[in-house]
């Protein structure tokens, strides 16, 4: 019986190892309980010049590999805080942060506000500038909201923008193949993610030069 349990343990670890996927989908055990992507599992992070070139758009996606059939029952977790960190002086320590958290069908985005804390624990800064947007229900047109500071926010399900033949990559890493297929097969085609999109005037995040940015999920 003990051997059986050990064998099962090995099997679970092997499966979990195989499922450590892609951009950051299911990248680590703590965010992929049972091999599934959780609400704390960041799948991707993007930051780019927006349609209005005076702005930068930040995209943080969580909980990947959502099938269309499961999409109507998936929503953001009110216990999970998404933080976008911004370093304006090149030392990889944040100088500003934005905090996003859902409450009763709305996404509340606080900031950007000044913060140099490197603490892995956070409290929400409710004194910061706020942008509130209704979370777009699955099947509805995208709902966005812009506040007086010119910050625009969206929260809801979107197509997973990531594309990768992860299955063949795994075969190569496992020594079962020596090259990619042509054409490859996008493992993420046809799947959805929970997306947070926040577009911010450059003037609020340093104005000019370069920034370093990264995203965190924190839960209580």
């Amino acid at each position: 019986m003990k051997k059986m349990k050990i064998l099962l343990g090995v099997a679970v670890i092997t499966v979990a190892g195989f499922l450590m996927v892609a951009a950051d989908h299911i990248d680590a055990p703590a965010v992929s309980g049972g091999g599934a992507s959780s609400s704390t599992d960041i799948t991707d992070f993007y930051a780019f010049r927006a349609e209005n070139t005076d702005n930068i758009a930040f995209v943080a996606n969580v909980r990947g590999l959502i099938s269309p059939s499961a999409s109507s029952s998936v929503d953001f977790d009110e216990n999970v805080l998404i933080e976008i960190n911004i370093d304006t002086n090149g030392d990889a320590i944040q100088d500003m942060v934005m905090q996003a958290i859902p409450r009763d069908g709305k996404m509340y985005v606080f900031g950007p506000f000044a913060s140099t804390s490197t603490d892995l624990n956070s409290t929400i800064n409710t004194d910061a500038v706020i942008t509130v947007v209704d979370i777009t229900p699955y099947g509805s047109n995208a709902i966005s909201a812009t506040n007086a500071s010119g910050i625009t926010a969206f929260a809801g399900l979107r197509d997973d923008p990531f594309y990768f033949d992860f299955a063949q990559y795994s075969e190569i890493i496992a020594g079962n193949a020596t090259s990619f297929n042509d054409p490859g097969t996008d493992l993420f085609a046809g799947t959805n993610v929970l997306s947070l999109v926040v577009e911010v005037p450059k003037s609020l995040i340093g104005g000019t030069g370069t920034i370093n940015t990264w995203v965190e999920t924190k839960s209580k």
Binding site: D24, A28, V31, N212, V215, K218, S219, K220
Partner: peptide, 21 residues
């Protein structure tokens, strides 16, 4: 208004794609 109190502890983090993976 909504209750935003409490302490949130870090679970995941990323910047560039596929680094941890």
């Amino acid at each position: 208004g909504p209750d935003f109190s409490g302490t949130y502890t870090q679970d995941d983090q990323m910047a560039r794609p596929a680094i941890n993976t």
